[in-house]
Computed example of a mutant assay.
Amino acid sequence: MPGELVPDRGELRASHEDRDWAVERLRVAAGDGRLTLDELDERLDVALKARTYGELEALFVDLPADGPAPAGGVAAVSPKDMSRIVVDSASAKRDGPWVVPQRMGIESKSGSVVLDFTSAIIALPTLEIEASVRSGSVTLVVPPDVFVDVDDVAVKSGSVHNRAQPAPATPVRLRVHVTGKVRSGSITVRPPRPPRRSFWQWLLRRPRPMTAIAR
């Protein structure tokens, strides 16, 4: 309407997608050594509670690259050439809209690593993973359009299980090739678990909702 005040971009309301994208950017910055763990925890808390673009943009004033994604979509990202995950007795997880790199190195001594590709940002057709699992575990959660090959993993006294085989007619969006060795731990590939029913769905005995596949 004529004469109506238009708020600045920083005052516009952020969406769930904007907050998720900000969280992933902060995780990448911490992985690059730009943020300490305490700084990461503090900024993640702010990002998850942010209501406006201005609150999100304030989290990146001392970090390189662009600010939060514009309304209407996630900003374009460039996947890393190499990403490493090393856990001792702790745990690490990549889920939500995380950016899949070209190669990954995973070392799990006695902890656990989970890679959830359900909502991952996939810009490349292939991913090479070199895994070293002692007594820990590595779990890959893959939707139907992600194919995982674990035939080249050397197993000593542990286990490797692939419970996610895509249907022949399903187009493959990402091929994951896993190599490395498992001593007394495990590598497991499985499909996403069905979403939990809400209380009202359970009460009315409605079927579980279909799992959405990120495109």
Rank of each mutant, 00 (worst) to 15 (best):
V28P: 00
V28I: 11
V28L: 09
V28W: 02
V28T: 12
V28C: 03
A29G: 08
A29D: 06
A30C: 12
G31D: 07
G31P: 01
G31W: 13
D32G: 07
D32T: 10
G33M: 06
R34A: 03
L35K: 07
L35V: 08
T36S: 13
T36C: 11
T36G: 14
T36P: 04
T36N: 14
L37P: 03
D38E: 15
E39F: 09
E39Y: 10
L40H: 10
L40N: 07
D41C: 06
D41F: 10
R43A: 01
R43L: 09
R43K: 13
R43Q: 11
L44P: 00
D45S: 10
D45E: 13
D45K: 11
D45G: 10
V46P: 02
A47P: 02
A47L: 09
L48H: 09
L48S: 14
L48E: 14
K49V: 07
K49D: 13
K49Y: 09
A50I: 03
R51P: 02
T52C: 03
T52N: 07
Y53M: 15
G54P: 01
E55W: 11
E55T: 07
E55M: 14
E55A: 04
L56H: 01
L56Q: 02
L56D: 00
E57D: 12
A58E: 09
A58K: 12
A58H: 07
L59Q: 01
L59H: 00
V61I: 15
V61D: 12
D62Y: 06
D62G: 04
L63W: 03
P64A: 05
P64Q: 12
A65V: 12
A65W: 10
A65H: 11
A65I: 10
D66N: 05
D66P: 01
D66G: 01
G67V: 01
P68V: 02
P68M: 05
P68L: 00
A69M: 07
A69Y: 05
A69K: 00
A69D: 08
P70V: 02
P70G: 06
P70Y: 15
P70H: 13
P70I: 15
P70C: 08
A71C: 06
G72Y: 05
G72Q: 04
G73K: 09
G73R: 11
V74H: 04
V74R: 11
A75S: 06
A75P: 03
A75H: 06
A76V: 13
A76W: 15
V77T: 04
V77C: 02
V77L: 08
V77W: 01
S78G: 05
S78F: 03
S78R: 12
S78L: 14
S78D: 13
S78E: 15
P79F: 04
P79H: 11
P79E: 10
K80H: 12
K80P: 02
K80W: 13
D81V: 09
D81G: 01
D81I: 08
